[in-house]
Amino acid sequence: MSLQKITRLSSLRLLSSIPHQQLLLPSIGPLTASSRAVIQGEYRRPGQPKEDKFPWQKIKLDFRKGLEGMKKHFTLLKTEFTDRWVGPEGKPLIEHMLEQNRVLWEFRGPESLEQWTVSSDREIGGQSEVYLKLGKNNRTCFLYGTLNSTPPRDGETRYSGYCTMRSKQPLASFDRKIHYDWSSFNTLHLRVRGDGRPWMINIAAETFFSHQKDDIYNYFLFTRGGPYWQDIKIPFSKFFLTHRGRIQDDQHPLWLDKINTIGFTLGDKADGPFQLEIDFIGVCKDYAHTEEFAYETYKRNP
């Protein structure tokens, strides 16, 4: 027998004596990608515990609430069908075409406050406080509280100190999302009375992709303080795009036909009490304003 055949037989016997699991290289793992690399995970605030619950464990079954919910949704469904026969948003077509001003939110009773929600840095362990109530004459919205920029001692959060008021997402029958259509207008109209602090106005629009759900358009609201009201008009072309508080390089105009919510944020790092009184929030058509977008956009290939 030749030397080459003897070497081949000995090597085969050696390989057959080694278990099959040890033949695989331990450094090579399974060829699978993490879920975070494929899909952007939900944002979890620092210090907030992670919920390890399945989706069906969060469902609360109540027969009485189910009947009330069915009655509510069928009433909304009936309203949707009747409004379509009258015109857009239940208004005659000629009135909709000639409309130049529209009041979206006005505070004329306790039920008007149910369309809004307030939050502060207490959600991440901060010390700021914010409250919402009606004004003295029950005809305005009064937002007040105390701002505290001391960060929580959780070892993760470096900055703190904010208070926010935001409108709720409008829903149609069976909890279907609907959007505000402001495409006939070009200016946001506010009547407010503040204490001299600068606020940030936040407008959220519908997006196509899940990783854009935190995109918000912002602009500044400067209050002058004192007992007098301010009529503030801000063109929609001035709003710039941000993502989780960071200004984006790729700027593009706001989609006025897919508006979801509007909000106000205070975070000027001036600790102490604050207040903001709002009479109404509306939109208008300013024919003297012809600017489409105030910021530079990237040029794309045709």
Rank of each mutant, 00 (worst) to 15 (best):
M1T: 11
L3N: 15
Q4M: 07
I6T: 13
T7V: 15
L9W: 11
S11C: 11
L12E: 14
L23R: 15
L31Q: 15
T32P: 05
A33R: 09
S34C: 04
S35L: 12
I39A: 07
E42R: 05
Y43G: 03
G47D: 00
Q48M: 14
E51W: 08
D52M: 04
D52H: 04
P55Q: 03
W56I: 14
L61A: 13
R64P: 04
M70H: 09
H73T: 10
H73F: 12
K78W: 07
F81G: 07
R84L: 12
P88Y: 04
E89G: 08
P92D: 14
I94M: 13
H96M: 09
P110R: 06
E111V: 11
S120I: 01
K133G: 03
L134A: 05
R139W: 10
R139P: 07
C141Y: 01
L143C: 02
S149A: 03
T150N: 03
A172G: 12
R176A: 12
I178V: 14
H179R: 12
W182M: 15
W182G: 08
F185C: 02
G196Y: 02
W199L: 00
M200F: 06
F209T: 09
K213W: 08
D215L: 15
N218Q: 12
Y219F: 06
Y219E: 08
T223N: 02
R224W: 07
G226V: 00
G226E: 00
Q230H: 08
Q230S: 09
Q230Y: 05
I234F: 03
K238C: 07
R244M: 05
G245V: 04
I247Y: 11
I247T: 11
H252W: 10
L256N: 03
L256V: 01
I259D: 10
T261H: 08
I262N: 12
I262S: 13
F264S: 00
Y287H: 11
H289G: 07
E292W: 06
N301A: 06
